[in-house]
Simulated scan of single mutants.
Amino acid sequence: MTVLVLGAGYIGAALIASHLQSGDRVVAMDNGFATDWDAIERLMDGGPAKLVRGDIRDASSVASVISDAWPVRVVYLLAAQASANPDAATPEYTEETNLRGPRLVLEAVRDAARAAGSPPPPVVYGSSFHLYGPGLVGEIDEACPIGPQADLSHLSKVYVERLGEMHANRDGMTVVPVRLGIVYGIGPVTKRDFRFVTVPHAFALRRLGGLPVTVNPSGARPLAFCHLDDAVEALRLAPVGIAPGAFAPANAATEVLTVPEVLFRVDASAREFGVAVPDAGLGEPTAPAGRFRVHSRLASVGWHPRRDVAGSMPGILRHYAGQPVSAPRSDAPNDLRRDT
């Protein structure tokens, strides 16, 4: 049976690589937004795989790729406009991709299973730990309530999770949102455009490029992080042991840090790498009182993450060294660019 990956960008490409290494047949669809298409094609040449250029906003594209892949063992719904940066895309593109797209995918998977007379495959959704909102304290498990959101990208995750829960309750679909921490690390498709990289990557690029680094006051709030390889493992393990027709969120966050703590780790590695880093004389940031802790149900099915930001920074710096910092794209389709 086939593994279907919708969204072959930063996380999706690493997931594809993992499944190809396991000998799985993979069908993937991506629309090429904010993604190096050549890198995806090179990745897909490495095994029993098919890459389709299509868009989850288009019902015919979704139906066609599901038909090509059927029978499907698992569907990974990772296609999204995931950046909170207001210059990443227009609000219209974010809404169409992050709201309408997942609805079309869930309906198409349901309808394909009904037509085949078989149970629908589990849909593993790339959600976000940001769902819990700011100001977290104590242990955060999957039963914790959803908190306030500050941008359209993360707000859309709330809608899609509720949509998935509706399909599980009403249509017997198995929907598994994986609430990922801020993902970092090098993979087959690693971005350099500041609009689409997470904070560890942004700091590394700025230090290598001699660009100024600032930390907003909100950066003192602890945040959850997850290495790319650990995120891939979490996505693969998420549907294990889940009963058909269940809605089963899973946390995938491995380390809790403030932004100044991330910068301290970037700077320590950058200095060892020979990069001139301004010395503010502040030393390691003081750990905030009441740092929250993350519990994941995935521990019970063998998820044991081993990576952290400090240990990953040398590899990130090596990857970016000698590569120019990307300017904002000027060749994106009009509906992907924010009006100015």
Score class of each variant (00 low, 15 high):
residue 5 V to N: 11
residue 6 L to E: 02
residue 22 S to V: 01
residue 23 G to F: 09
residue 23 G to H: 00
residue 30 D to P: 13
residue 30 D to Y: 12
residue 31 N to S: 13
residue 35 T to H: 03
residue 38 D to G: 04
residue 42 R to A: 06
residue 42 R to F: 09
residue 43 L to H: 10
residue 44 M to Q: 05
residue 48 P to M: 09
residue 54 G to W: 06
residue 56 I to P: 11
residue 56 I to W: 03
residue 60 S to W: 06
residue 62 V to H: 01
residue 63 A to Y: 07
residue 68 D to A: 15
residue 79 A to G: 02
residue 84 A to T: 06
residue 85 N to P: 02
residue 89 A to E: 13
residue 97 T to F: 04
residue 120 P to Q: 03
residue 124 V to F: 12
residue 127 S to N: 10
residue 139 E to L: 15
residue 141 D to K: 05
residue 146 I to T: 14
residue 154 H to E: 03
residue 158 V to Q: 11
residue 162 R to C: 14
residue 165 E to A: 11
residue 171 D to E: 14
residue 178 V to L: 05
residue 179 R to E: 02
residue 180 L to R: 00
residue 188 P to G: 14
residue 192 R to L: 10
residue 196 F to R: 00
residue 201 H to M: 08
residue 211 L to Y: 12
residue 212 P to G: 09
residue 216 N to M: 14
residue 221 R to S: 13
residue 225 F to C: 01
residue 254 T to R: 08
residue 262 V to L: 04
residue 272 E to T: 10
residue 278 P to R: 02
residue 281 G to S: 09
residue 288 P to H: 06
residue 289 A to M: 08
residue 290 G to M: 07
residue 298 L to A: 01
residue 310 A to Y: 00
residue 319 H to G: 04
residue 327 A to Y: 02
residue 328 P to C: 09
residue 328 P to F: 13
residue 329 R to G: 15
